[in-house]
Write a protein that binds this DNA or RNA. Structure first.
Lengths: 195, 195
DNA sequence: ACTAAAATATACCGATTGGTATTTTATTAT
DNA sequence: ATAATAAAATACCAATCGGTATATTTTAGT
């Protein structure tokens, strides 16, 4: 790994939480230099512009979440247990133990849907990928007779994502873990009702 | 209504959609003057600062949603039908027929939770009020034997809000009304399963 | 119609915005 | 160790940021 690559990663690591908290417009180049300790010249030596940093930061934040989920999901055998993984992983993003501004999908979707095309397309891809992933799990669950065949995999996927993301919005706003717990209890019931 | 009050309302009406789309940091005073056709001096003659405009814009956006919901809810008699009102109202915010950037609660919560205390407190109040409203409806439903008494009103309220707001995030991002429809079908099932 | 007050426009402020050309420093291959 | 190269720092740019003091216009009461 060359020096430039190291610096690039360093910049992304340090700015990713800021973009996740403050959003694209709310994060200034001064924020970026302050967080990295680097100068503007150095930032622009590694990135073409602010957009490129923001896009890389989103990728980083997304991978941070999804890799944790993948790792935990691989430990589970049943489809339902795999689906329940989201609850435990996101809990850590709520209670502050991992938190860096909440779910990057939610933050970036709301931040960019009307303002930033490139960022919007990245989140869109992430959500559609997430949806497909859950839908395939549901299909596998149906094949394995673990989930009733009368369920629409896409609908189940969208419903799970909606509950999680809506739950994050509420819980992070109210800062009540009890709210998260209650919503996730509903999600558990929903998942267990699938078959 | 004095001239200043008219102008104040005019500024709020014109800028409310902008704040809802671009967020607080993303909306500049240039945006505000461009949308109103007024000059900076006129804006600052009616508002102390940008914050005051943003706060008034949020109030306006929130009232726009909640008054529509209240009006429609009063037409319904059963508790379940009252709860189902959210689906039809928010549909209009999704398909673009009323849209001005989506749900102000979701937008402002995500925008302000880590950045803007005053705005954050306003959304927090809105969400807690919304939660209490649904919880009281559920309690009334239990009293009327329309909803089973084993349901936790607060939990039902939080779950409904989460599905709606999560559904808005997804549907506005993907611009697929089918996604909204599928998620709302799940919400209908959930509401109907209450009793 | 006239005047006092209210509301809006003009013209400006310093600070910050994203971005760049140039110089200095650090790295790396020989 | 040195030269070539890569990376980072410095110093700057025009434009825009939120905000204000003052001048002008518009409104409203008599």
């Amino acid at each position: 790994m060359t020096k430039a690559e190291k610096t690039r990663n360093f910049i992304v690591e340090k700015t990713a939480p800021i973009f996740n908290m403050k959003g694209y417009a709310g994060t200034s180049l001064n924020d970026i230099t302050a967080a990295t300790g680097l100068t503007k010249g150095s930032i622009y030596g590694n990135f073409a512009n602010k957009d490129e940093v923001a896009l890389a930061a989103f990728d980083y934040n997304l991978k941070n979440v999804s890799s944790r989920i993948d790792a935990e999901m691989n430990k589970q055998v049943s489809i339902k247990d795999k689906l329940l993984v989201y609850i435990n992983i996101y809990q850590k993003f709520i209670d502050g133990s991992v938190s860096e501004g909440g779910c990057p999908v939610l933050n970036t979707a709301v931040d960019a849907d009307d303002t930033h095309t490139e960022l919007r397309e990245k989140v869109l891809k992430a959500v559609l990928g997430w949806k497909n992933k859950i839908a395939k799990l549901v299909e596998a669950g149906i094949s394995a007779k673990e989930i009733n065949a009368d369920h629409n995999p896409e609908q189940v996927a969208l419903t799970i994502i909606a509950i999680i993301e809506g739950g994050i919005m509420i819980s992070r706003l109210t800062t009540k873990t009890s709210h998260w717990d209650l919503i996730m209890e509903s999600l558990k019931k929903y998942i267990n009702s699938l078959g």
